[in-house]
């Protein structure tokens, strides 16, 4: 199934990815080929089959919903690419 340029653009926007002209052509081809490949699934009759969502046959065990302080604010900020003493920092959002 051929995917058009506009679809690649739309999907990239949803995925928060950007591609230059050349990359967009290559991803368009890859996506088309991958969709051709997975379209094979249409050959399988799935009438009246329930989608499989949970892999375990047993009921998942849930732990008690208790508030826990597992990490400190400093730890939460430890890996941030940009921060001050209390907050994550991002480039300016509101333009003057």
């Amino acid at each position: 199934m051929a995917v058009d340029k506009l679809t690649v653009k739309k999907i990239a926007t949803l995925a928060k990815l950007e591609f230059n002209e050349e990359q967009a052509v290559s991803i368009q081809q890859d996506l088309s080929r991958m969709l051709d490949f997975v379209n094979k699934l249409n050959e399988v009759d799935t009438e009246d089959v329930e989608p499989l969502v949970y892999m375990l046959n047993e009921r998942p065990t849930l732990r008690k919903d208790e508030p826990l302080q597992e990490i400190s604010q400093q730890e939460a900020l430890k890996n941030a690419p940009d921060k001050d003493t209390d907050f994550f920092k991002v480039p300016k959002v509101i333009k003057r």
């Binding site: 739309k10 999907i11 996506l31 997975v38 089959v49 989608p51 499989l52």
Partner: peptide
């Protein structure tokens, strides 16, 4: 990109749900 495509509105059932059904089979 492929994952976003198969989950996107209009294609979700044709790809994602379909594959979940095949997985059950």
């Amino acid at each position: 990109m492929l994952g976003t495509y198969v989950l996107s509105s209009g294609f979700y059932d044709a790809y994602y749900t379909k594959a979940q059904k095949v997985r059950r089979i």
